[in-house]
Amino acid sequence: MRWRNHQIITGLAIYSITGGFISAGLAAVGAVLPDVLEVGGVIKHRTVTHWPYPYLLLASALYLWQWHNPSVLPYLLFFFVLGVVMHLLLDSLSNHGIPVGQSPSAGKRLSLNLYKTFTPSEEVTSAGLVVVFLATAYFRGLLSGEHIRLEVNLVVQLMGMLIGR
């Protein structure tokens, strides 16, 4: 899946669940990490960087850290890593899938074969997911002017704190 589709779908999915711009934005940034880690083709595409178990373990650890000791760092890291997990879920919908064996090179892959990257089937699948997550956000009231205004104010306040105003 193209990076833009990974980021749009992941951002919308997380927003439709949390209603938060920050969590959605962090997840959208994390949504390209598995491909970025391939270091310009040094690591073969959809191998070790797409093996889900380390990311799932890390996401679980961050969730437990946040649960037992609520603070900003585990919150931010959790949603970033959740973006990585969403990347893998979206790639598992493709014809090539993701490695799920005992090791990334074990040969076992998860593929639902809904689309092929760089074809119209990717765009149709992406559009369908966008509609699902937008509808979810709409019916949860997360697209209302009031909710969006509150989220924008929160982001502005946090940015002000970060730059010292």
Results as ranks from 00 to 15, higher is better:
Glu122Pro: 02
Val32Met: 13
Gly40Val: 13
Val48Asp: 05
Ala31Lys: 01
Val42Thr: 11
Phe133Gly: 02
Gly101Lys: 14
Val42Trp: 12
Asn113Leu: 01
Val131Lys: 05
Val72Glu: 15
Asn113Phe: 02
Gly83Tyr: 15
Ala59Pro: 14
Glu38Asn: 11
Glu123Thr: 07
Lys116Thr: 09
Ile98Lys: 00
Leu26Thr: 01
Thr136Trp: 13
Leu62Trp: 14
Pro74Ile: 06
Thr125Lys: 05
Ala61Leu: 13
Leu114Lys: 11
Val39Ile: 09
Pro70Cys: 14
Val84Trp: 03
Pro52Ile: 04
Ser105Glu: 12
Ser60Thr: 13
Arg109Phe: 13
Ala61Ser: 12
Ser105Arg: 08
Gly101Ala: 06
Ala24Thr: 07
Leu64Val: 07
Glu38His: 10
Val84Phe: 03
Val132Asp: 05
Ala24Asp: 13
Ser23Ala: 06
Ala59Leu: 08
His96Gly: 03
Ser94Thr: 09
Pro74Glu: 15
Ser92Lys: 02
Asp91Ser: 04
Leu77Ser: 09
Ala24Arg: 04
Tyr75Ile: 11
Pro70Thr: 15
Val124Tyr: 14
Leu110Lys: 11
Phe133Cys: 06
Thr119Trp: 07
Leu77Gln: 08
Ser103Gly: 08
Gly128Arg: 12
Trp67Thr: 10
Pro70Asn: 12
Val36Glu: 03
Arg109Cys: 04
Leu57His: 01
Val131Ala: 15
Ser111Glu: 03
Lys44Asn: 09
Val29Phe: 15
Leu90Tyr: 01
His96Gln: 09
Ala24Ser: 10
Leu82Gly: 04
Asp91Ile: 01
Val100Met: 09
Val84Leu: 03
Leu56Lys: 00
Leu89Ser: 03
His45Asp: 12
Ile43Asn: 04
Thr49Phe: 04
Pro120Asp: 11
Trp51Lys: 04
Gly97Asp: 05
Trp67Gly: 00
Arg46Tyr: 01
Leu77Arg: 12
Pro34Leu: 10
Val72Thr: 15
Val81Leu: 01
Ser94Cys: 03
Thr47Ala: 12
Ile98Met: 00
Leu58Trp: 08
Val100Glu: 14
Thr117Gln: 12
Gly41Tyr: 04
Gly30Asn: 01
Trp67Asn: 11
Trp51Ala: 13
Leu37Trp: 13
Val84Ala: 02
Ser60Phe: 10
Thr119Glu: 12
Ser105Tyr: 11
Ala61Val: 14
Gly30Pro: 00
His50Cys: 06
Ser111Tyr: 02
His45Lys: 04
Thr117Pro: 06
Ala61Trp: 07
Asp91Glu: 01
Thr49Ser: 04
Ser111Trp: 00
Ser60Met: 13
Lys108Ile: 03
Val39Gly: 11
Gly40Pro: 15
Ile43Ser: 15
Leu77Ile: 12
Val85Gln: 11
Ser92Pro: 04
Pro34Asp: 06
Phe80Gly: 02
Tyr53Leu: 09
Ile98Ala: 00
Lys108Pro: 01
Phe80Tyr: 03
Pro74Cys: 14
Gly107Asp: 09
Tyr53Val: 06
Val124Thr: 08
Ser103Gln: 08
Pro52Val: 10
